[in-house]
Design a protein around this nucleic acid. Sequence first.
RNA 1: GGUGGGUUCGUAUAACGGCUAGUACUCAAGAUUUUCAUUCUUGCAAUAGGGGUUCGAUUCCCCUACCCACUACCA
Length: 572
Amino acid sequence: MERRTRVRFAPSPTGPLHMGGVRTALYNYLYAKQNGGDFIIRIEDTDSNRFVPGAEKYIIEALRWCGIIPDEGVDENGNVVETASEKHPHAPYRQSQRRSIYRKYAEQLIAAGYAYYAFDSSEDLDAIRSAAEAKGETFTYNQKSRTGLKNSLTLPAEEVERLLAETTDWTIRFKMPENTVVKMDDLIRGHIEVNTDTLDDKVLWKRADELPTYHLANIVDDHLMEISEVIRGEEWLPSLPLHYMLYKAFGWEDTMPRFAHLSLLLKPVGNGKLSKRDGDKMGFPVFPLQWTNAAGETSHGYREDGYFPEAFVNLLAMLGWNPGNDQEMFTMDELIKTFSLERIVKAGAKFNPEKAKWYNKEYLRMKSDEELTDLFVPILESHGITVSGCYMCPVTADFEKKEFSKNYVKNVVSLIKERATFVQDFWTIASYLFISPVEFEKYGVKAGAAVEQKPADPRRAADPRAKVYDDAATAPFLAKDVDKFWKEENYTLAQKAAEYMNSCGCAKDKQTLETTLEEYIRGNEWPMGKVMNCLRLALTGASSGLGIADIISFIGTDQLVERVAFAAERLK
RNA sequence: GGUGGGUUCGUAUAACGGCUAGUACUCAAGAUUUUCAUUCUUGCAAUAGGGGUUCGAUUCCCCUACCCACUACCA
């Protein structure tokens, strides 16, 4: 009989979910959905020392933002299920609330000779470890060393009984068999063999907090929850032999899940896995959602930084997996259809923040103008702009009162969306379609504002053009570009042109404005580029930006005249 | 140190023994434009090294190098 596909994502609530963790959850989810199975969340909080308040909620909210909705373990309100029901038969899904389950399984292993009691205190073991280290050796609690340590294999039965009853810091350890080759199969990595002599006697259960360690809890829960495939990070590969041995010891080999170990996400430059530091240093988030730790330090989140969840999911899916063809854009449904474990790449993937931005840009372009407008309105409001009306209402713009109709905003969005990567870019790109510029490039952007040139190709790190100017005043290209055209002989012409446009009585659509303005300037045999650039500087405050006719069609010729006059006065 | 995993342009990847090693991002150049951006065209750029096996190796095997993970009463 075909086994029902049941996979789980089992995070431990020790902090915010890393984007690599999100990817693991995503792959689990895709696999479950593709096979018509269940995606289960289980909270692995067996280490009370590392528990972080809020982490569990964060993880669930992050997955939800990505559109990864669990079938089991978490209810509709995003709470981890604590009592069993038809939909959540294996509750509780928090391991700390399952402690009564694990001990009997640990005892079962002892009874069958697969495990034993160990009475060495952590201090004793620490001492032995440092002593070994001093001699340049590494201590491992294994087949060889256990004969000389305090445990139920070396101590007389009465002494074991006494210690069990009287002390509380003992553990149960797995009795790793000697010289046995464990033959394993990984869905991604293929066949792997390991000799048990290289393995140690892992702690399975801790009397001190009456909780199992990961290894025991994981195997027991995966078995009880009828997990069919375990898709997890590569860091677990070294403990796969132990897990195989545990399934065997319990006699659960028939229903043992199949395993797939995912490679890690690596930092963009240099070596090592992606960390919070890399994000801070290079200015990209490593967490799906913003996170503030106990010390009050806040880390960026993809959501807060303006990424669309679809873009985030898409870019994550493509990090270490590919469909085998050139398709790069995938909806969640397409991913569910196309995903396969066979096409997962074995090597670790370096994260590329540039590509992440590219994805968001692509998704932004695919959004409707209305959808983007709705996202832009709150940003406008935060700048003191009032947006009123509906998408059926007429287009209106009042620069005095800073009141604009929804359709005006929509038209702006439609014009500028190709230039943006994030919705919040809209304001930077087109603030002058809502308010008059008061700063002009000639005097530099505000001191301290970073003027960053195009990111340089890493191969050309020595390229002097890659320099980043942190003081706009010292960025020569800006002032120079402006000085080139902002001269009295030019801007007086611009003023005349503006006045002409205001009085010509021509239609105010973009096309008419453009031809009228061009014909006027050409007719007078004025230098087209210089006059246009003067107009742009006056209208936008910058030497680059939208087309002049576009801008005028939005702000109107009254604003045109006003702004040119203001600039001529300010920049005299 | 030990064990396991990995290695194709700067990055993500394609090519499951067979065309000139393909695509995307980045970068560069050109075209378009009143500027910037967009768009279009073009370009730069890789099989870690060495041995095998084979008519033929990016692909299979071995060695070396490098990278990663694990080596906790953490997950």
